[in-house]
Design a binder for these strands. Sequence first.
DNA 1: ATAGTTGCAAAAGTTTTGCATTGTA
DNA 2: TACAATGCAAAACTTTTGCAACTAT
Lengths: 143, 143
Amino acid sequence: MAKALREPKDTSAQAIARLREAGLRPTRQRVELAGVLFQSGDRHVTAESLHDEVAQTGVKVSLATVYNTLHQFTEAGLLRQVIVDAARSYFDTNTGDHQHFFVEKEGLLIDIPGESIAVAGVPAPPAGLSVDRVDVVVRVRRN
Amino acid sequence: MAKALREPKDTSAQAIARLREAGLRPTRQRVELAGVLFQSGDRHVTAESLHDEVAQTGVKVSLATVYNTLHQFTEAGLLRQVIVDAARSYFDTNTGDHQHFFVEKEGLLIDIPGESIAVAGVPAPPAGLSVDRVDVVVRVRRN
DNA sequence: ATAGTTGCAAAAGTTTTGCATTGTA
DNA sequence: TACAATGCAAAACTTTTGCAACTAT
């Protein structure tokens, strides 16, 4: 009775479908990581937090694989990488148009719905460059 | 004749004044770093690029001291830290209200004047938090 | 069978730290 | 002289890499 006898089939099935759509082989590790990442609502993880979280479910995935997978998911459009801290990257399961509050001291990232924020007046980039995306980070702190 | 016999006095004097105003002791290393940082127009450096640059002037400053100094300058309001790359921090000599283009592949940061960009609709932060500053990064790439 | 994945450990790179030494005021 | 600042080397971390072993198709 050490392991969960019945993992919710739906979750795995959804994860597998999601991976297939993204053109990624549904390996055990990817299915597990996708399950953890996408079964609950929008969330932000770091490589290490995700690694720890998966470890607690009893599944073993190496940290290197977590990094690889996070980058693969990002390239496939399943995740969005958010860089707000000099020391580590965050990966956001919400790939839609939105921005973030960042509580520096706590390393905490909070979503700001995309509709609420508007950035106006972005000048044309220098010749030869085109805009990829616009990131807004509202740095906040505890009162 | 290995060393410059007459460093521009003005630069040092200005740097010393700037440091005194910021409440920082004008040590040889700080004066040198401030001289390099502030004598030309606005610029962006990383700890390593600044360390290399200073080394080329013949002055020896340890990398650890460069890191310390960059953070001291930032706390004193002389620099602004810009985090756009997962691997390294940039320090901007322009502390005024402005934003950046970032060419990811080249690690290149380009200023966007503050007046041109406007961010509207930033919601009130969650209870207990107050806005420190708003960073906008326009990620661009070569065509 | 084969091409894609994973794990492990080691490497690489940036940033921080501890402590003896030095320098500023 | 006292206290702040520096240098050095080592430590701490995150992230990447190389290669043998494994696995999905």
